[in-house]
């Protein structure tokens, strides 16, 4: 919950709500990009960001993203975050 996870912004999904689709370790997840938006949101597509609880908080470069992901895997935090994302999806359906 406290550590962000790197994800790549792949598409803008709802510009009015500042929402985009990010790919995090192969998993797609809707994220809010208000904190990293500068200029047209389209410019964010392809960029890497540190994502905290569904909010992109800082733009990082690809190398930093790879290093951070490796560190998170070492701590077991990457897996935990991906599980939390899956739990969040299930919660929407009232399943857990």
């Amino acid at each position: 919950m406290c550590l962000g996870i790197p994800g790549q912004i792949v598409a803008v999904t709802d510009a009015a709500r500042m929402m985009a689709m990010a790919e995090v370790s192969g998993v797609r997840r809707a994220v809010n990009v208000a904190c990293i938006a500068q200029g047209p949101l389209e410019n964010l597509v392809g960029q890497w960001a540190l994502i905290h609880v569904g909010f992109a908080m800082a733009v990082i470069d690809e190398d930093e993203a790879a290093k951070t992901l490796e560190a998170l895997r070492g701590l077991g935090e990457a897996q935990e975050t991906l599980e939390a994302m899956a739990a969040g999806d299930a919660a929407l359906e009232g399943q857990i």
């Binding site: 919950m1 406290c2 962000g4 997840r29 809707a30 809010n32 905290h52 609880v53 569904g54 909010f55 908080m57 975050t81 939390a84 994302m85 739990a87 969040g88 999806d89 919660a91 929407l92 857990i96």
Partner: peptide, 29 residues
Amino acid sequence: MVYSPLDALEIARRNPEREVVFFGLGFET
């Protein structure tokens, strides 16, 4: 259990007859 307060918002939209409370926990991150 949700990953993000955005999930909680969405649950609120889908369940207008219920009160959805999100537990805001954590530091400045």
